[in-house]
Amino acid sequence: MSELAIVSSSPHAHSGSSVQRIMLDVIIALVPAMAAATYAFGWDAIRLISACVLACVASEGVSRKWMGRDLGVEDLSAVITGILLAFNLPPSLPTWMAVVGSVFAIVICKQLFGGIGYNPFNPALAGRVMLLISFPVFMTTWSTWGIPAPLAVDAITTATPLGLVKTAIATTGELPFTFNGATALQLFVGNQNGCIGEVSAAALLLGGLYMLVRRCISWHIPVAYLGTVTLFSAILWLHHPQQNLNPGFHLLAGGLMLGAIFMATDMVTSPVTKRGMLVFGAGCGLLTMLVRKWGGYPEGVSFAILLMNAVTPLINRATRPRVFGAVKKKKA
C-alpha cells in the first residue's frame, strides 16, 4: 500500500442523513398543499409561491455572500421559508409585498441571527407577522367566496370562516352557521377562504404523514398542538354550544393544520427533547385558542407559534432528560 489511509475520529459510519435531504423531504411534503393552493386560487398561488421562493433564495444567497459565510443556498432551507411564507399570505396580496416579506424573513430573521440553525423565530412566520403589521388591510383582504349552502349566511362573503364566526359573535352573539358533516368536508378538502396554503387540511395532513415516515418530524408537536386545541374547544363548546363552534371546526378552519404540521415543527425553532416538544405543542394550542376566542384577530396560530419559539430555549432547559444513572444513586 503506497498511500496512507484516512485517519479520523470514530464513528466511521453515518446514517446518511443530511440537512439538505431533510429540507428536500419537507419540500416534497409541501407539494400536495401547493397543488391544493393552485387548485383553489389558480394563478395567484403560483404567483405568490414563486415570488416568495425566488426572493428568499436570492436574499439568502446575497446576504450569505455579504456576511462572508461559507455556506451557500444548497441546504434548501430558503426554499422552504419561501413556500411557507407564501402559504401564509392571502391570494390577492401584491407581489412586491410578498417580496418584502421574504427579504425580511431571510435577511432580518435568519441571516442577521447567524444563518441556518441560529434563528430563534420561524422566519416565515416572522415575515408574515411583519406584513400583517405593515399592511394590515392587504393582509386581511380576502377574495369573494361563494359559500355553498350549509356554511352560508349569505351566498357570497369576503371573510375567512374564522373571521366570519368572530364578527358574527361580536355583533349578534350567535354563530353565523351550523357546523356539520357537509361543512367539515368542505373545510377538509379546501373549499374555504384563507391564506393560500392553509385551505386544505387533507393536503397538509398528507404532507405531514410523509414527513413522519421520513422522520423529518416526530408526532409530538402536531399531536400535542391539535390535541390541546381539541380539548380547549371541546370544553368551550360543551359549555356554550350557541357561542362556540365545535372542535371539528377549530381543527379544520384557519391556519391550524398548516401551523401544527409545518410551522410549529420547524426543527431550528422548536425544542429538541420529546417532552419539550409536547410542552411546546400544548403551549401553541393554548395560545391559539386564547387568541381565537378572546383576541383581537380571528386567527392566532402565527402569534402562538412565535411566542412559543421565544420560550423554546427555556423549554429545552426545563425538559433536559435525566442523565442515565443520575440521581438514582444506590438507595441509601
Partner: peptide, 26 residues
C-alpha cells in the same frame, strides 16, 4: 467512506433521542 462538511446544528434533536446516556450532545 465519506468526507462531510460540518454545518451548524439545526436542533433536530436526533442526537438527544439516540444518546444511550440521555445526554444532550447538541
Amino acid at each position: 467512506v465519506q468526507a462531510y462538511e460540518s454545518m451548524p446544528c439545526i436542533s433536530c434533536g436526533r442526537c438527544v433521542g439516540v444518546c444511550p446516556m440521555k445526554l444532550m450532545p447538541n
